[in-house]
Design a binder for these strands. Structure first.
Length: 469
RNA sequence: GUCCCUAUCGUCUAAAUGGUUAGGACACCACUCUUUCAAGGUGGUAAUACGGGUUCAACUCCCGUUGGGGACACCA
């Protein structure tokens, strides 16, 4: 039987990288086994769910290339189904109405906690007298699942047998007083109706799984195979959250991370192919993926490694493709009124030192804009000799006179000038880089000169000469 | 407080069913290349949490301790 898996994000926020990783593992598993990958939007919390978030989640998944099978499902369109099942359980005495208000619950819970006791729903409404029931009959009520005694266990594909005593589980709500289902309830019904065979999700759901198993048992349904993945942690080893910076998938897009790099990185966060290879394409990931090779321990998200990996992927792109990617995230607020050939040359020279798409501008702004100022330390270092002005002046006239302005003639002009002055070429190269780029670091100067072209070079040299005066 | 999961370099991880000089990658350091910075090349620092068992032999199995993570909503 071909597996059917699903990713079930809640549109109450952006697509978290942790959710993206869970989606990825589900997707990889489905692809590997020739199964189906379903996307189900868990928007049962009508107050907090928004259509905007749904759109962003979809956009994120598409950007990552994690396409889903079948139509897009919304739990909010299935409320009548959950209700029907809930009534069935009510009729069979498997759940009972609860009239406790939020405030009542909070106060009783507060007392328990003040006494350092573990709070669990006290079953007040289970033990209501008939009279009480009559009086409350018209009040809004939630439905609580009556948790039986005993032990619950299930076989987790990664962790093996997991068990819990029912006495540690409270009578949880399955239908809220507004008639909408809670997560655990809707989840079980949908997973059953959609014939989900494997549930691959974060281990923060382990405690939910016990409750869900209880529901499967009462409905007489065969539960799917569970795999609980370790979570992603921030650098302080707590669950990755906003405090740690970028956590939304789209944040990474904005920061110039390539989707294929993010996929590769996320795949290796808690899983390994068992070989000494770090760079794996999607196809290679699918090929070697297996749930058995998942790690059991939470993994710290190492942004530095992501950047390194992204750099590797950037380097493998053709200049054309890289330009396309850079254009997609925009060149910042600046307009780039340069011809394509010119921009491509800049892309080519910057490519190997880029780690993020945004580095394009960080590293090469001067190709498109004259430097406004010179690096302070650079001035002290390379503009301090009075002879520099003379040298640049000679160079400027020499460049102006060049008929062929290419790498060869450029290098020759610089080196012969240095020789004439009886100095090392570096003494010209460094001041020149500062003059042309405003910086002390960057790609090969000869290449910079060539790309900028005679006109800009002469103009910038002039400016520097004036500055030195 | 209660419950659940978990334990190899700083980080991500590899070492089929017990036998390895405990491997790779990121990061870091050094050297090299070089017109600078990256990149590249070469080399290096760095780990089996601790204590008991079982065994000829334990990173690997068992038990404790400690540490780390997670869950305890009419959120998902």
């Amino acid at each position: 039987m071909k597996p059917i898996v699903r990713i079930a994000p809640s549109p109450t926020g952006f697509l978290h990288v942790g959710t993206a990783r869970v989606a990825l593992y589900n997707w990889l598993f489905a692809k590997k086994e020739g199964g189906k990958f379903i996307l189900r939007i868990e928007d049962t919390d009508i107050k907090r769910s928004t259509a905007e978030m749904t759109d962003l989640i979809i956009e994120s998944l598409k950007w990552l290339g994690l396409e889903w099978d079948e139509e897009l499902y919304f739990q909010s369109k299935r409320f009548h189904i959950y209700k029907k099942y809930a009534e069935e359980l009510l009729r069979d005495g498997i759940c009972y109405p609860c009239y406790c208000t939020h405030n009542e619950l909070e106060s009783r819970k507060g007392i328990a906690i003040a006494q350092k006791k573990a709070w669990k729903y006290d079953r007040k409404c289970l033990n209501l007298s008939d009279e009480d029931k009559k009086g409350l009959a018209r009040m809004p009520r939630a439905l609580r699942f009556f948790v039986p005694e005993g032990k619950i266990e299930f076989d987790d594909k990664l962790h093996g047998k997991l068990e819990k005593d029912c006495s540690d589980i409270e009578d949880f709500v399955i239908l809220k007083s507004d008639g909408t289902p809670t997560y655990n309830f809707a989840c079980v019904i949908d997973d059953h109706e959609f014939k989900i065979t494997h549930i691959i999700r974060g281990e923060d759901h382990i405690s939910n799984t016990f409750k869900q198993i209880l529901l499967y048992q009462k409905f007489g349904w065969e539960p799917p195979i569970f795999t609980h993945l370790p979570l992603i942690l921030g650098s302080d080893r707590s669950k990755l959250s906003k405090r740690h910076g970028a956590i939304s998938v789209l944040d990474y897009r904005e920061q110039g991370i390539l989707p294929e790099a993010l996929i590769n990185f996320l795949a290796l966060l808690g899983w390994s192919a068992g070989e000494d290879r770090e760079i794996l394409s999607k196809d290679e990931l699918i090929d070697s993926f297996s749930l058995e090779r998942l790690s059991k321990t939470p993994a710290v998200f190492d942004y530095q490694k992501l950047e390194w990996m992204n750099g590797e992927y950037i380097n493998k792109l053709s200049d054309e493709e890289l330009l396309k990617r850079i254009s997609k995230i925009g060149f910042g607020s600046r307009e780039l009124n340069f011809d394509r050939e010119y921009i491509l040359k800049v892309v080519a020279i910057l490519k190997e030192r880029m780690r993020k798409l945004t580095d394009f501008w960080e590293l090469g702004a001067y190709f498109f804009k004259e430097p406004k100022e010179y690096d302070k330390e650079g001035i002290e270092k390379h503009f301090k000799y009075p002879e520099t002005q003379k040298r640049l002046l000679l160079l400027e006239t020499r460049f102006s006179g060049l008929k062929d302005f290419n790498l060869e003639t450029i290098e020759k002009a610089i080196r012969t000038t240095a020789e004439e002055f009886g100095i090392k070429a570096a003494l010209i190269i460094h001041p020149m880089r500062l003059a042309l780029t405003g910086r002390t670091v960057g790609p090969s100067l000869f290449h910079i000169v060539e790309i900028l072209g005679k006109e800009r070079v002469v103009k910038r040299l002039n400016k520097a000469i004036k500055f030195l005066r």
